[in-house]
Write a protein that binds this DNA or RNA. Structure first.
Lengths: 187, 187
DNA sequence: AGTAACTGCGGCAGATGGCCACAGTGGCAG
DNA sequence: CTGCCACTGTGGCCATCTGCCGCAGTTACT
C-alpha cells in the first residue's frame, strides 16, 4: 500500500514519539502535533487520512477538535486515545465523529487495527459481544463519575455535590489512574 | 398533550417492569418487548419516538436491532442499556446509531435525561419534571452489588470475584449496610 | 476419609475518604 | 475598583475502609 499520512495529536511528547515510531514502522507517514493549533495547521497542510487524537490536550478538550479536523479533511478518520477512558467520553467522542476510541495504554497494532477497520463500515461479523463479567465496582464508580462530570460540564464541585461526596475526594479520585477495562490481562 | 411513546426492549422481565413503571410516571407511554421479534412488531405498530434497548437480548445482540428500528422509525432515539457495559460495545452502539449508552444500574431519571438530551421536539412539558439527582455513589454501588449478588444466587465468594473485590470486603459491606439511606420511590 | 467449595470472623497495616484550611482565579454587582 | 461568590488545586489530620492473612465450621461431591 502507498504510505498513508497519519497525524498524531498528543501533548505527551514521549508517548507521541513512541507511537510515531511504532506507526512509522507499520507503513504510515507520521506527523505529530502537540496542541490544537499545531494540529490544525498540520492538518491543513498535509491533509492526513488518519489521525490519532488525545482526549486530554492540556487545557483543551480534544473532542472539540474532531469536527474541525473533519471540516479540513472530510474523509479523515480520527481515533481517540485517552488514559482516562470512560463510557461517557467514548459515547461523546463517537457522537462527535470519531472513528473509534481506545484507552491507553494501547499497543500500536490495536491502533492500526482501529484506524483501518471499518472500510467495510459496520460489517455485521464484527459485532462486539458484551463481556460476561459485570463491571468491577471500581470501574462502575469511575463510569458513573465520568458521566455525571460530563453532565456538569466538567464542574468538579457541582459533580461532587450531586454525587454526594466531598469535593476533595472527587478530585483525588479523578487524579488517580483510571481503571483498566480488563484488569486480568497485561499488555 | 400527546404522550411520547417509549418502547422498552429487555428480556429481564423484572427490570423491564420496574423501568416501565418509572418511565410511565414520568410522562411516557410505555410499551415493552422481551425479544427482537416482539420489538419489531411493536415498533411497526406504535412508531415509538423513544426506545430503551438492552444490549444482551437473550441469544441475540441488541446492536443488530438498532438499524432495524431506525429503518422502521427514522426519528427514533435508541438508548442502549446494559449490565455488562464496556467501552468497546459503547463505541459500537453509537456507531450503529444509538443515541446514548448507559450502564446498569441506572435510575429512571438518568434514562429520561439521556433520552431527552438534545431533543428539540420534546416539548419539555411534564416530561422533565424529574429531579436532577444522580445516584449517590454509595447507592449506585449498593445497587450494583445487589444485582450481581442476585446473579450469583447469593454466593458471596463468587460475587466478590466478579466484582473484583475481596470477599472479606464484600462481607463487611453487606453486613453493615442497613440498605436504607434514602427511601427513594420509583414514582 | 479427603478434597474443595462456601461462610463467618478477627486482626493488622496501609490505602482511602471526609473534612478543614488556605491560596489563587475569574465573573459580576455595587 | 472592591468585595462577594464560586470554582480549583493543594496539604494535612484522623477515622474508616480495604486488602490480605489466618482459622474454624459447614456442606457437597469423590
Amino acid at each position: 500500500m502507498s504510505e498513508q499520512q497519519l497525524l498524531i495529536i498528543d501533548d505527551d511528547a514521549t508517548f507521541a514519539r513512541v507511537l510515531a515510531r511504532a506507526l512509522s514502522s507499520r507503513g504510515f507517514e507520521v506527523i505529530t502535533a502537540s496542541n490544537a493549533d499545531e494540529a490544525r495547521a498540520l492538518t491543513r497542510r498535509h491533509q492526513p487520512r488518519y489521525c490519532v487524537l488525545d482526549l486530554k490536550l492540556g487545557e483543551e478538550n480534544g473532542l472539540r477538535l474532531i469536527p474541525e479536523l473533519q471540516a479540513l479533511v472530510p474523509e479523515i478518520r480520527v481515533l481517540l486515545l485517552t488514559g482516562y477512558a470512560s463510557i461517557a467520553t467514548a459515547v461523546e467522542a463517537i457522537k462527535r465523529g470519531a472513528h473509534d476510541y481506545l484507552a491507553k495504554p494501547v499497543d500500536a497494532d490495536a491502533v492500526v487495527r482501529a484506524l483501518l477497520d471499518g472500510d467495510t463500515s459496520a460489517g455485521d461479523e464484527d459485532l462486539v459481544d458484551a463481556p460476561e463479567a459485570p463491571l468491577a465496582l471500581r470501574r462502575l464508580e469511575w463510569e458513573h463519575i465520568q458521566r455525571v462530570l460530563t453532565e456538569c460540564d466538567g464542574n468538579i464541585s457541582e459533580t461532587a455535590r450531586r454525587l454526594g461526596m466531598h469535593r476533595r475526594t472527587l478530585q483525588r479520585k479523578l487524579s488517580k489512574h483510571p481503571v483498566r477495562e480488563r484488569p486480568e490481562q497485561e499488555d
